[in-house]
């Protein structure tokens, strides 16, 4: 976690305590469904990071292909994160019009549209 690393030494111990409590709280209070989605999010994040590293370290030569790949990661990430927000029972009050099933339908539609543009851009 970025914020934790940037903290200063006097609060470091407290931060690490806070971090462990946070992690425990996450493990305890998150349903398996959400964990499933979170795992997927982590996967997408790593894919994106590797692609970005390739662009920065090696070459950005087919720039459109890089953008397509990276944008597919980013897009899929935010769509999945949106799905997570929508199916999260804690957010139920915010999404009156969106049932979890509707959220999944939205997610598939968004993904298909996204993938269409990704393939179109891939070259």
């Amino acid at each position: 976690m970025a914020p934790a690393k940037s903290s200063k030494t006097p609060v470091a111990s407290e931060t690490s305590v806070a971090l462990t409590t946070m992690w425990k709280s996450y493990i305890q209070h998150t349903s398996d469904r959400l964990k499933l989605i979170d795992a997927f999010l982590v996967f997408i994040m790593f894919s994106g990071i590797v692609q970005f590293a390739y662009c920065v370290l090696v070459t950005n030569f087919p720039f459109n292909a890089f953008l397509a790949g990276f944008a597919s990661c980013v897009g899929q990430f935010v769509l999945t994160a949106s799905l997570r927000a929508q199916v999260n029972p804690e957010n139920r009050s915010e999404f009156n019009d969106v049932s979890p099933e509707r959220a999944f339908a939205d997610f598939t539609l968004g993904s298909i549209v996204l993938h269409f543009f990704v393939y179109n851009f891939l070259g």
């Binding site: 980013v74 935010v78 769509l79 994160a81 949106s82 927000a85 939205d106 968004g110 549209v113 996204l114």
Partner: peptide
Amino acid sequence: TSRLYVAYSSWYAI
């Protein structure tokens, strides 16, 4: 709100 997040992210990414 999460609604803002969902709306903006899906609009911007795609």
